[in-house]
Nucleic acid binder design. Structure first.
Lengths: 110, 110
DNA sequence: CCTCTATATATAGGATGCCTATACGTAGGA
DNA sequence: TCCTACGTATAGGCATCCTATATATAGAGG
């Protein structure tokens, strides 16, 4: 049974997924998601930041302030081992949603 | 670019899809969606009815009161030609979301 | 007869997640 | 000087889903 949260949480899956490939700060995450999906999926920073705070509060990601060469302060997030562990069932839930919608309708998934 | 609405509207796609196979009343829609997805996707009637009113207001479905043999009154909804026309781009948008998430993460879609 | 379950529609109220708008601030090019 | 890119942060709004509740008929079992 797919929970209610899954039908929304696209951003959560996206963020955890890009963080799996290595630490990133918020601004770069948004860019990375947009680039990797060729512009299909975009999130505003205003939705990403609160999401990152939630994820950090849960212990799925950990943020650390750093200062770039140019002296700009930014918060670099990395996936925790807890977060890595949680990603797998989330992916399974999404796969289930895909299967369900595929059965119900005729959404191609090429 | 995937619109903001698409990341939710699972119910909309589901309802329009089951109505494509023939007219149904609300209660039966919920059963049909659950059955066709083998229980993976369920909606409460409390979310389906308001959705049907919205769809009817847009002219995508049309509801008609009918009385069953047993004398029970119920509202039978059918997909309008307008609704049929709208279903196709919605499916395309979902397919795009699937592709995007597939690229981003490693959601299997078997 | 009474109660329980299935059928059937309807609305109120709440939670959540994403949005726009706005704010603050640095760096670099025109 | 102004504009764009970079970078984080919060307030306020809206849509969609949820739970809870109301109403009402049909049929089965006690």
């Amino acid at each position: 049974m797919i929970g209610p949260g899954i039908k929304r949480g696209t951003a959560e899956l996206a963020v955890l997924s890009v963080l799996e490939d290595g630490p990133l700060h918020g601004y770069e995450m948004a860019r990375s998601i947009e680039r990797q999906t060729q512009g299909s999926l975009r999130f505003t920073l205003a939705s990403l930041y609160p999401l990152l705070y939630r994820l950090e509060k849960r212990g799925w990601v950990r943020g650390a302030w750093e200062t770039s060469r140019t002296g700009r302060r930014r918060r670099c997030y990395r996936l925790t081992s807890e977060g890595k562990k949680r990603l797998s069932p989330i992916r399974k839930e999404w796969a289930e949603l895909f299967r369900a919608l595929k059965r119900l309708t005729k959404v191609s998934h090429a």
